[in-house]
Design a protein around this nucleic acid. Sequence first.
RNA 1: GCCCGAGUGGCGGAAUGGCAGACGCUGGGGAUUUAAAAUCCCCUACCUGUAAUGGGUGUGCGGGUUCGACUCCCGCCUUGGGUACCA
Length: 1020
Amino acid sequence: MKSPFLGLNKTNTMKYEPAVIEPKWQKYWEENGTFTVQSRIDGNQRKKYVLDMFPYPSANGLHVGHPEGYTATDIVCRFERMQGTAVLHPMGWDSFGLPAEQQAKKTGIPPRTITEKNIANFRRQLKMLGFSYDWTREVATTDTDYFKWTQWIFLLLYNTWFDPVQQKGRPISELPIPQDLAGTPATEAYRDEHRLAYQIEAPVNWCPALGTVLANEEVIQGRSERGNHPVVRMPLRQWMLRITAYADRLESDLEQLDWSDSVKALQRNWIGRSTGAEIDFYVGETAADDYEQWKTERQKTGFPRKPEDFAHFAAICRLPSAVLRIYTTRPDTLFGATYMVIAPEHPLVENLTTPERKEAVVEYCRSAASKSDLDRTELSKEKTGVFTGSYAVNPATGQPIPIWIADYVLISYGTGAIMAVPGHDTRDYEFAKQFGLPIVEVVQRAIGDGSDSRDGCGYGYGGGSGEGSGEGSGFGGGIEVAFTGEGWAINSDKYNGLSTVEFKEKITADLSQMGVGRKAVNYKLRDWLFSRQHFWGEPFPLLHEVDENNNMTGRCIALEESELPLDMPADLKFDAAHNSPEPPLEHAPDSWLYVERNGKKYKRETNTMPQWAGSCWYYLRFIDPKNGGQLVSPELEKQWMPVDLYVGGAEHAVLHLLYARFWHKVLFDYGIVSTPEPFQKLVNQGMILGETEFTGFILPKEKIVESSFTDYESALKKVAEGDAAWVSVSEISIDRDGYGTLKKDGTKLFSVKLSVNNVGKNGDNFFLKDDGVQDIQVDSRANKMSKSRGNVVNPDDVVVQYGADALRLYEMFMGPLESVKPWSMDGVRGVRNFLDRVWKMIVDVSEEAADGRRQMAAEVQNVPLSVEQNRMLHKTVKQVTLDIQTMSFNTAISRMMEFVNFFLKQEVRPKRAMEKFVLILSPLAPHICEELWQLLGHGGTLAYEPLPQYDESVLLESQVEIPISINGKLRSKITAAVNADEQTLEVAALSDARIAELTAGKTIVKKIIVPGKMINLVVK
RNA sequence: GCCCGAGUGGCGGAAUGGCAGACGCUGGGGAUUUAAAAUCCCCUACCUGUAAUGGGUGUGCGGGUUCGACUCCCGCCUUGGGUACCA
């Protein structure tokens, strides 16, 4: 470090004034590059990569939710540096995004200008909070130098196929081409079908209000996640990323991560892996000969592979009809499959529809297609469907079963067709009831009592025996509800008596043997819709061949790596009335839009990438932010990856984290990154809510007829009837001495005479029992911060009033990092008071000292610590160290409060204790600690001072207080030597006056003595 | 419906099998002050008792395990979040 006092403003203030010392130290850190970290780590220095989820720089500036996670990581970083760890702690901007584009449309100001202004504001605010970022590594996803590499990764994805055998991504040039395609123009089409980035013409979620297409993940119940606008389905050419290829690895690699179970569960849920079986149903005439021939052909050809192949298969088999493949997780219920259902979009709809059913089917499919997702889910109560006229053969029973079309079967999952087992599936049951289809039970929930069917299954698990065994298990009669659990097979021929688990395995094997079924795995995860109709996003490095009328004709080709970055057009006219799914880049100047190459004319791709793209890999760029030739240097990547700690909001628990993991795995397959997973440990900070608001009402006593107002609903009614009035109060308190105070906006509204006797509590509500002048009921609730509620807390205001250290400390003191908690300005005042006391503990704040010379408090002296003081110091150091390691910052702070409470009472405060305290407080409240450190006579920064160590032996006390309980109830306490053995303790306990009194005349049945801890006597 | 989490004073929370309520806020009382602010000290789970080093109750509800349960087990209730015709 450089000269200690260089560039520091001398302050003449005795008082703790954050407004003076905080900017002073921020300037010092910046000028001295205190937190700049060398990319190369020396020798075997320990490394730690601590990452915050970088923010979207919105026009609103920082929200108090941001500093919560940022403070937590900052504490960890500062703590680690003081232990000699090399710490990488960067910050940047996720700066593409819709708001800037919308503002640009409105104002005509280019989005880049808007974004830069917002970034400047965010940067100022973050620096104001004293976070120890290495600002030399700052990146923004909108920087050309940055999105060059986002485009580069896209090209990599484009030029990759997923090899299912090796379970990894490989160069598209290594894709084996089927012989019949080799050398033909179809080769390229075949490759295009296998790329990780591919385009489709498909129904997409078009949101007119936002003017964009949304990913499935961004649509919630038929409405947009952002803004809650209606979303309609319409066909459009789109780019997709084949994330489903990595579903298995994305799921199984979760195991090795140090993430909360809930986030892992969330991701598993989203991936939605299920295992079951695919079963092929013979469709057409039911003649046994045909059926046997069909099975033989199946075994010979191995066809069909995909639903689209079915018709083809029927043709090559020269069979009258086709084959219908379904997916089920319950192959054990095959004997109960009494009909089949295919989705309205299923490729076989036409083939399966008989002439006399055609009209009804066409009509049904048309109405299903016009339904939005919203309609489909909202109308889910009523099942709809139509019979095709065709039948399939249940391979287990050989019986023909009808094939229906219904929109409760989704084309996008499994094979788009199901075998319906109304006896054991709720949806099939509802459908069967509605259309009068047969219901057969094939699973028994428990072995019937008294019956003999127990043979062959000695399993003890399963539903509660005895109870419940009678109801619902009698087949033949109509059942009231489908039993969807596991149990034992009935009505299943030779499989009867098998458990669900056994049955599944057996029948899957048997079907496989017959060539009509096989084990199968399915995922809920869908491919990632990767294109957006925005201007303010990364352009795709792609070109489409066009004819002289600029219509896309030929293939799509990719740019070369050397052509990157592909910048967006400089002068784009925004069409304010733009209200179609057409991308804004369609309006780009021709000079940008059209390219000539090898004598052919090409048009650029006009879709852009979604905001997720830039945030998928930013953690890699921080390692090597200025590398012009590589995304990241392999050597540096190896040193710093993986991210050791990643902190951010739970709202990214699924999408961002899944997308980033997917990209990372592709990079891993190419050896560009060295770890299979990017983020080793993940912590989600809980949301900070607005201040708790109290709503209450006052009910004039005379109008109360009965006490029913203690119930909230009836109180509401009374208010409505005019018998009671609402008040909005910011605070109410009822003390035990007989006065309750009701305040509004900080002003006292009135006091009510109350007493403990007549104040009752019902849940969260107070009420007067009797004798009260008025009855009061108060409802308290903390809400999300929002502009419309007017409860947004601005970090700027808090820093002006209380200082950055106070804000940091308060956010950490509120409660556990991961829980949701309401803001409290009084709480901020509380930690500010603590900082004032810390200051007073060390600095001379007396009148006499106000002559301009700052000095230590007279109590701070260069003397050894007393035993008690030393113990307090070591205890505090120990607790704080452990708490920071487990990120329990709230308790760490409370320990330090105890330290200050203790030492403020000491007439002599050894300087050494003060110094150590300042060091352990410094990760949490760095500014005040730097100042105090300087005042204690040290030069430079304390950022790299070794962290104080604690000595376990100092903590040992010679005497301890031992609680004595009788029958589990605390009755007395004795003081004993810390190492007193059981016998000594027993004697001491029994001779204790109070214990002797309470045990007199009674028998001590048992004595539990835990040396050094407690004594419990069981007395009769 | 399914998956995950939570439920402790007036409030935020602490204690993961051994003294429930640390620490902080709020409220009350006192000191200081001409006064106020600021600061400092004391009290603050509930009921009961004239009193205390008193008695009783108490960690969402009902059971259980244990000498001992906020903590572990079983069954519920409430609540927050995620997800949903995913076969």
